[in-house]
Design a protein around this nucleic acid. Sequence first.
RNA 1: GGUCCUGUGGUGCAGCCUGGAGUGCACGCCGGCCUGUCAAGCCGGAGGUCGCGGGUUCAAAUCCCGUCAGGACCGCCA
Length: 575
Amino acid sequence: MRTHMCGELREGDVGKRVRLCGWVATRREHGEHLAFVDLRDHSGVTQCVVGGSVEARSEWVLQVEGTVRRRPAGNENPELPTGDVELADCNVEVLARAEPPPFAVDDRVESDESVRLRYRYVDLRRPRMQGNLRLRSRVLTALREAMLRQGFCEVETPLLWTPTPEGAREFAVPARLHRGEFYVLPQSPQIAKQLLMVGGVDRYFQMARCLRDEDLRADRQFEFTQLDVEASFVSASDVREAVTEAVVEATEAAVGERPGEVKSISWQEAMDRYGVDKPDMRFEMELVDLGEVFAGTEVRAMAAQCVKGLRVPAGAQLSRNRVDALAERAKQLGAKGLASFKVAGTRSGGEPVLESALEKFLSATERAGLVSATGAVPGDLILVVADSWRTACEVLGQLRLELGRPPVGTGGRRLCWVTDFPLFEGLDDEGVPIAAHHPFTMPHREDLDLLDSDPLAVRSEAYDLVLNGWELGSGSIRIHREDIQRKVFDVLGISPEDAEARFGFLLGALRYGAPPHGGFAVGVDRLVALLAGEENIREVIAFPKTQSGTDPLTGAPKPLSAQSLRELGLRVEAR
RNA sequence: GGUCCUGUGGUGCAGCCUGGAGUGCACGCCGGCCUGUCAAGCCGGAGGUCGCGGGUUCAAAUCCCGUCAGGACCGCCA
């Protein structure tokens, strides 16, 4: 139907008779003898010169046959890649008429997201969405190619899986042939890929759709895509290298430049320096340990297990209200309080001048120590939290983000690995440890003895990949020995009978020759969003759901017909 | 389950605090004029359940209560 795309024609095409197909982007009429129609497809727009009487409105679909010619001198449009040429002597065929669109197909006009989703097929015509979809396609291709090049084999795993009551809430699928029984949609192919390792696949990957019935967020949808990876006979760093290679390749394919050095940092160090397990390394403002400064302090507010400080450059100019709000925020985040010190200047003797409610209680040594440890200069603000180690780190880490974080899409791309996560993230109400990653995560070899005596101190062979403060994914070396797996289940309070009922098929596989193995999963939606400079993954998904899990386009979810329910053996209870 | 923000012609917004006739702006739409525009321009016009329900009031887009929808976040996401 067409010989060229709408964004394709250049001066070198002058004289050619061509056919374009696309949508009417704009129409400019100049009386009955002259009109311009900008014809748009995903590649761009071309100006078509038509008689004034042409019948074509916004978003009509046209086929235009015409001759490429240079625009009259002085009438070129430098804003357009095709701006030196235009289509003349046009023969216009209307392929489809269109009602006026509910909103302008134009990146410059913002529209309410629920309206955009209801008319997603119109929204997708906008350059922004076209760009995002195509960027996503390039990322998927680059990831796939990188994995194949490294000897990985793509294997598809079932979407109809078995319930594994553990972790995220699963979507259930009634089994028509087995009344009263259900499949579930996989929250991840975790166990399936481990079985592939036992099956000798050696190096597996998959662009895996994962489904979790949990509440939605800007960075979370019910269904999402992971680059799922698993490999046998590998160390944690082997896995990280393979994944790094793929993500670096994808970044280059998406934005044309490779990210800088990919750092690696232990979980402990990440918490100490950034106060989070997913540090945003695009900016400094690292947390400072003030334990020594306040070691023997007389100030009760500073006497705690851990004292940490955050230097806010030029923070002294923050208003009193703003600083009060920070203190309020700190309490909201779980701190007992937040001390703040404005660095006003320096006395002749070199002693810093601090402005703070606590200032008069500090010794001269503490004043000097506070300033030198944080590296603060006059004009700065120093925030201090004295609390448990965990609270002090987390509260200041959050304030660091709120005070200094650059907008999405700016400050470059800083990838880092966070390693040596704790195996357990805490205790439940009954004092039983809770798995931080999943229950198949290998404990650190050196910490195996601590499983009984001090489980919370056990480090794991788990690692996260972080890009600009977003968790891109996580992985681990898995347990491949049945005895260790049973031991971990035991610590987690899962009885042998329970374990057999839930994961019996996995434990069975471990008895039939399981190679040491480990893997990873990259959150592709988040990766694409970051590379596209979007702060919401819905912008890189063709047909996303709203925060309440509905689809304004189709109206899903909807009730099932009485007959469908009967076939499935289901009865719906009134609310 | 919870906190906060938003809801006004097709679209985006102002009006709400401090109640007084659906008042306004921009875009779009319809009609007219216009032979070099490019988000064309000029003139004219149409288009409204102020999300929905209740309350207060002589009077509610505006104040109060409830509810629905969208969004941000907490919980949740092994």
